[in-house]
């Protein structure tokens, strides 16, 4: 794959990859197609392109964490990443996620899904296979999905305090039926202590913290641990 920006010009591979990385941060997803349209199959491996996209998203995530990128801007970065993935798929490139599967959704009783959607974008850009169940998701749908996908992690979200009981209920049932699954929670009414009190393994205050917290709770999965099982 080469990158003929100008006819006859040989552009260093690193510069091409830098362009791809930068377009992830450009806050203008429409530019992605333009950049990809100039890529020529053959000189760049899809993994390299995806790697550059991921590097761009990693920078965006750092900026979000540091307050240098706002949530609206970060949403546009996610859009750019997804468009890039779409372009790769269009070129029949293999872009399958390499990390664990994560089932995610907003618990029943809540329809606010922006936070969850941002986390989905962050996880996808970090290489996880994400099964997004959407919003207002009943408990049984989570349980079915864990059964179907054999995911290692369940991520639950709510922006309201009223569905916290539903969140607790989902966690209790996952403990009973899928004791090996790790559970991460997030959302406005939660903090670390409340997350622990309803039985979650991890809590992420913001989307930028999610990959680190996922790694932490999955690392616990890799070694024998006592898994609290709800009674009753």
């Amino acid at each position: 794959m080469h990158f003929p920006l100008e006819e006859g010009e040989t552009v260093a591979k690193s510069k091409i990859l830098k362009n791809i990385e930068e377009v992830m941060l450009a806050r203008n997803p429409a530019q992605v197609e333009k950049v990809f349209s100039k890529l020529d199959a053959g000189s760049l491996a899809p993994e390299e392109i995806l790697g550059a996209m991921t590097a761009g998203m990693e920078k965006a995530r750092s900026q979000l964490k540091e307050g240098k990128c706002s949530i609206p801007e970060f949403l546009l970065c996610i859009d750019a990443f997804r468009r890039g993935v779409g372009q790769l798929k269009k070129a029949n490139a293999q872009v399958a996620a390499k990390k664990d599967a994560v089932v995610i959704g907003v618990v029943e009783g809540d329809v606010h899904d922006m936070g969850k959607n941002i986390v989905v974008g962050v996880l996808e850009a970090s290489g996880y296979r994400v099964i997004d169940l959407g919003k207002d998701v009943p408990r049984d749908r989570f349980l079915e999905s864990l059964e179907e996908t054999k995911a290692s992690l369940l991520a639950l979200s709510t922006m309201m305090s009223t569905p916290l009981e539903n969140m607790r209920d989902v966690i209790e049932w996952v403990r009973r039926l899928h004791p090996g699954v790790r559970i991460l929670v997030g959302g406005a009414p939660l903090d670390e202590r409340l997350a622990r009190s309803i039985g979650a393994d991890g809590y992420a205050e913001g989307a930028a913290d999610v990959p680190g917290e996922v790694e932490r709770v999955l690392a616990r999965l890799a070694r024998p641990v006592d898994i609290p099982v709800a009674s009753g």
């Binding site: 949530i71 609206p72 949403l75 546009l76 606010h112 899904d113 922006m114 959607n117």
Partner: peptide, 12 residues
């Protein structure tokens, strides 16, 4: 509009 869509629109 939905917050997510509105946020994008605020920038674009």
């Amino acid at each position: 509009r939905g917050a997510e869509r509105l946020f994008r629109d605020c920038v674009l």
